Every structure is written in structure tokens, then in C-alpha cells.
Amino acid sequence: MSSPSHTIPLSLLDLAPITQGSTATEAFEHTLDLARHAEDWGYNRYWLAEHHNMPGIASSATSVAIGYVAGGTKRIRVGSGGIMLPNHAPLMIAEQFGTLESMYPGRIDLGLGRAPGSDQPAARAIRRGLTAGGHDFPELLSELRAYLDPTREGRAPGVRAVPGEGLDIPIWLLGSSGFSAQLAGQLGLPFAFASHFAPDYLLPALDLYRSNFQPSGALTEPYAMVGVNIIVAETDAQARYLATSQEQQFLNLIRGGTSPLLPPVDDMDALWSAQEKALVRGKFGYSIAGSEETVATRLRAILKETAADELIVTAQIYDHKARLRSFEMLAEIWKTL
């Protein structure tokens, strides 16, 4: 994709969806296929997300999945959107991403979140303490950064990350509220906001990030990436039909359950109550499902409203060919903005 100079980078977030009746093996085959196409279509980065205990998401071992995608592509940046740092020892993440950066130099991103990416039973199984609530995230982050850059303080005495030490691995902070936005600003790190599931907090978080920003060795100016659900199809009706798969996924989460990604349905009103519909639709304030014209119009409004430096898009589409086509059409739309 040869973008006009006035456009910003476009990136892709993949949850490696396991669809009803399929397997994780098929999910990873589809992920690599999409990543290779995304590279050809001009997407800037391809990120995978850490989630646990979810039958519809295959990317729980996120570092492994990143290596698989990076090994099967040539140019596109590959990274985590994100690694949930409280689930891991900082040394282990430094070593894992040091290994990835050593294997695929100049192509690896380390996006970090402070949520568990799981329910409480899974969090206990990961052996993560349930009392911290993410409040120790700044200390964990400081320790991780010190393993990568030994001039910093915070690492365990006498411990080095090999591979990892001395490598320039871009660190992003991810968030769905103000905590990480403020911290990213204070540390001068790039910030990515999960508006694809927390739309109400997007603009306040961006303001908090930019108003707290302090220049650093990583950035001289704020750099904010905004997450958006986008599904493109030939018609608005077709796109809305495809979008019912991700609506069912959110509906199941609201009801306290999880499932593989389900096929689209003709009528969501047969599945949810009015209250559930409002709750699910409330999660999609920064989501677009429509034709090329509809998507382009809404995208222009989002870019103007957020002044985003980069957009990262995701789409939970049941049919792999339809998913490929959606991201291909989006890449074409991006050229016109």
C-alpha cells in the first residue's frame, strides 16, 4: 500500500480466533495467512493479544505466536497487543522478547498491559497474586526496562537478560482507562488505547496521555495509537451480518461465559434482551461495520476526533475469506483518506 503523505500508519490486531468447529491449528494457519496478506497490503504492524481461558482465542502463548508470525513474514513489524505483564516475571519477558528481537532484528514490538487478560480462576492458575490489582505494574515495568537497558535501576542484583540486554525493543503501554495513559505520558512511551472495547474512555485517556507527556529517549513527542473494530463488506447489510459474530462474543462475555467465535446470524434480537443489546452496542462506540463508503466516512470522523498518530484495527469475522476481504478493502480505503 503506497499511502498518501497525509495518512497515518494502519496496523492490525489479531486475536487468532478459534471458530466454532475448528481448532487452534486452523486458527494459527489463518493468522499467518492474514499476516502475509497484511504485509502485502501495507499494514505497519501485526500485533497478537494475550488472553487466557477463552475457547475462541488461540494467542494465549503470545510470544510463541509472535515468533510464528514473524518467521512467516518478511517486513511487517510483529508484536504484542499486549503482553499482560502482571502475569509474568519481567525477566522472562525480557528474555522472550530479547530472543524474538535477536531472531527478527528491527521488527519486534513489546506492548504491555496491566490487566490479567483472564478470569480469576485462570489468574490463579497462572499463579498471579490476585491482590495487587495491577498497582505494582510501574515496578514490574521498571524492572523489565532495566533488564533491557542495564543503565537503568530496578533489575534484580546480579541478574542479566540474555538475550535481551542492550537490545532496542520498542515498549508500548496499552490501556482501557487512565492509569496507563498517564504513566505512558510520564515515561515518554508510546501509548495504545483499547477503544475497540472501551470506547467511553478513549478521549479522556488521550488527553491524559498528551497532557502528562514528558520527552524521553524513546519519544520526543506523544505518539498515540487508537484501536478500532472495523468490518468492511460490499454492502452495509452484509457487513452488519458479519459483525453479529463479534456481537455474540461480547454477549457471551456479558453473560459470564465464553465460546468459540460463532457463525453470523440474521437476527441478533432473537438472542439478546434490550438491556443486553444496549450493553453490547455500548462496547462498539468506536466500531464500524459497513460498505467502503460508510467505513471511509466514519474513519475520517474518528481520525479528526482523536488526532491519532496510528490506527490499529481488529475484526472478529467467522469466515476467513470474508475476514481477508474486509482487511483488503480497508487497506484500499486507507489510500483514499
Results as ranks from 00 to 15, higher is better:
Ser259Asn: 14
Tyr209His: 12
Ser102Val: 03
Arg145Trp: 03
Leu251Thr: 14
Ser176Glu: 00
Trp334Val: 07
Leu148Thr: 10
Asp267Cys: 01
Gly134Ser: 09
Glu292Gln: 13
His52Cys: 03
Asp168Glu: 14
Asp269Gln: 12
Ala296Phe: 06
Ile76Lys: 07
Gly217Leu: 11
Thr73Ile: 12
Met84Leu: 15
Ile171Leu: 04
Asp109Arg: 05
Gly188Glu: 03
Arg114Val: 00
Thr244Asp: 06
Asp236Ser: 03
Arg45Asn: 06
Tyr46Trp: 11
Asp136Val: 04
Ser59Phe: 13
Ile317Gly: 04
Leu34Asn: 04
Ala301Tyr: 09
Val232Cys: 13
Gln275Val: 13
Leu299Phe: 07
Pro138Lys: 07
Ile83Leu: 13
Thr23Ala: 02
Ser59Ile: 08
Pro105Met: 12
Pro163Ala: 12
Pro121Ser: 11
Ala296Glu: 15
Leu130Met: 14
Pro263Asp: 13
Gly175Val: 00
Ser63Gly: 15
Pro105Gln: 10
Ser245Cys: 10
Ile169Ala: 05
Ile231Arg: 03
Ala218Phe: 05
Arg160Phe: 13
Leu173Cys: 01
Met103Arg: 08
Ala239Lys: 10
His6Pro: 01
Ser216Cys: 03
Phe197Asp: 00
Ile108Asn: 06
Ala322Lys: 14
Ala331Glu: 03
Tyr286Gln: 09
Ala58Ile: 11
Leu12Met: 11
Asp119Ala: 04
Lys335Asn: 13
Gly56Tyr: 11
Ala270Cys: 05
Ala224Asn: 00
Asp119Phe: 06
Phe327Asn: 05
Ile83Thr: 14
Arg210Cys: 07
Leu311Asp: 04
Arg240Ser: 06
Phe284Asn: 08
Gly133Pro: 02
Glu29Met: 03
Asp149Arg: 14
